[in-house]
Design a binder for these strands. Structure first.
Ligand code: MN
Ligand code: MN
Ligand code: ZN
Ligand code: ZN
Lengths: 134, 134
DNA sequence: TAGTTGGTGCGAATAATTCGCAACTCGCTT
DNA sequence: AAGCGAGTTGCGAATTATTCGCACCAACTA
């Protein structure tokens, strides 16, 4: 596994649980800690939820996963490689649509130029009303 | 109080607690339910935290207050009239800066034109790194 | 192969928010 | 002015989400 480097370089270990959590996040796309746990338990029923939380945090520190806020509640996780779009969340039907990052380019540049603020447009969802719900 | 209309029209009552919660939100600007409760308790120690939660929800349904997500955690509330800017949240120092809504105009228009998505740019904060923390 | 130290399972502890319900009161009607 | 009914409140308990403490286990390393 190439991920070993990311981990071992920081004195961390590649445990089965950790591999399983990472694999689950990669397969699921956006997913809550609970969903990750369920996925992992399909093949390894013994895994503990707090282990999932701890590994998501560890994997995020190492840069292999990231979290995003899609709704009013908790965070969802995704593989770091996969963050190539922003999320359009409809406040009425709860639908989550995608849009390319480029669509926010002028906005991001303006924030950078005028405020020196480097934006991560996809950390928080873009909230509003989708075309179906107008 | 002009707010009576907003409430009574929907069969709701203007109780002292409700007035106090609304007044606190208006004075505090962005504030968590807990902060609203503390503010109200300065003059009315008896108010219950669940009453604050319920009234914030009610006032939001009626359109007098709104909530926004400034950080990874819970929501903050503000008076509806006051939502005239978007929030730039720094992931490193936690600072919350403001920027005018107009700075997102082309972005909002693009989402409208290309996806039919009507964006509320200030419901979620804009996340990134502030100029001090680069 | 043994030792060091990070990781895991588990149950308890926190924190944040929501509920259930009896008592209370706002606003309306006689 | 008094009465009534439905919306509200206080309170404690219940949920949910996430974090901790700790003894035991196991991944790396020499
Ligand atoms: Mn929200
Ligand atoms: Mn976050
Ligand atoms: Zn919708
Ligand atoms: Zn900063």
């Amino acid at each position: 596994m190439a991920d070993q480097h990311e981990l071992r370089d920081k004195g961390l270990r590649l445990t089965p649980q950790r591999e399983l959590v990472l694999a689950a996040v990669r397969e699921l796309g956006h997913s809550t800690p609970e969903e990750v746990a369920e996925k992992v338990r399909l093949t390894h029923p013994g895994i503990n939820l707090s282990t999932v939380y701890r590994n998501l945090e560890t994997l995020e520190n190492v840069g292999l996963v990231q979290h995003t806020h899609l709704g009013h509640g908790g965070a969802t996780y995704h593989a770091a490689e996969e963050l190539t779009h922003l999320h359009l969340v409809c406040g009425k039907c709860e639908a989550v649509g995608d849009a390319p990052l480029e669509i926010a380019a002028t906005f991001v540049n303006a924030l950078s130029d005028e405020y020196g603020f480097k934006t991560d447009v996809s950390h928080f969802a873009i909230y509003g009303t989708c075309s179906n719900c107008q």
